[in-house]
Amino acid sequence: MTTKVLFEKTKVLTDVPFHYCPGCGHGIVHRLVAEVIEEMGLAPTTIGVAPVGCAVFAYDYFNVDMFEAAHGRAPAVATGIKRVQPDKCVFTYQGDGDLASIGTAEIVHAAHRGEKITTIFINNAIYGMTGGQMAPTTLVGQKTTTSPKGRDKDWSGSPIRVAEMLATIEGSAYIERCAVNSNANIIRTKKAIRKAFETQMAGKGFSLIEILSPCPTNWGQSPVEAMKWLEDNMIPYYPLGVMKEV
């Protein structure tokens, strides 16, 4: 009997089982990033930086040299790495608490300097690891453990649109927002991630892919409901598409 390999997991992920919740988007995005790195032949020269947040253990999953950064500082750490090893492929993987709250200065200035790094930014509109607190990306009216009556615009402001903001900065070279709520969008996300890494390796400047991603656990929904909630609530506020390409 002959056997045929129909699917093989990318070698750029280790065999360590993910700790993510059922229905979480992180697992999908990890695989997309790893597949792109493998397909582009970048694995031997790639150095990744993990955040503080749900993806804190990303250094156990990506099968390349990895750093774990202090909360929000991944773009600064990546700057240090890239500046001493300019021929390497350097990426950060960050959530919305890490990137859009405590690490806003670092991400804005990495873009501002035009650092030739790639950032994978997971926007799930909530703090996951600490158990569902309000994030800068939490939608108005969305209930979290620190906005129990729903986010109040007058009290806490309106959610921040990171991709649009960074696209205004001269040093950014490729910025796109994607989502992982459907097969079609997942395929688009992978293409965007590849484009971002190509931008980095061409030395064009800073690249970031913002990915809308479900968090069923902290949204208090089933995985299927979460996919729908993302489509109905997040995408209207956070439109998908290329924000910047040079």
Partner: peptide
């Protein structure tokens, strides 16, 4: 803060 984290990376 960023400078010292760049030191960490380098």
């Amino acid at each position: 803060i960023a400078a010292a984290n760049m030191v960490y990376g380098a």
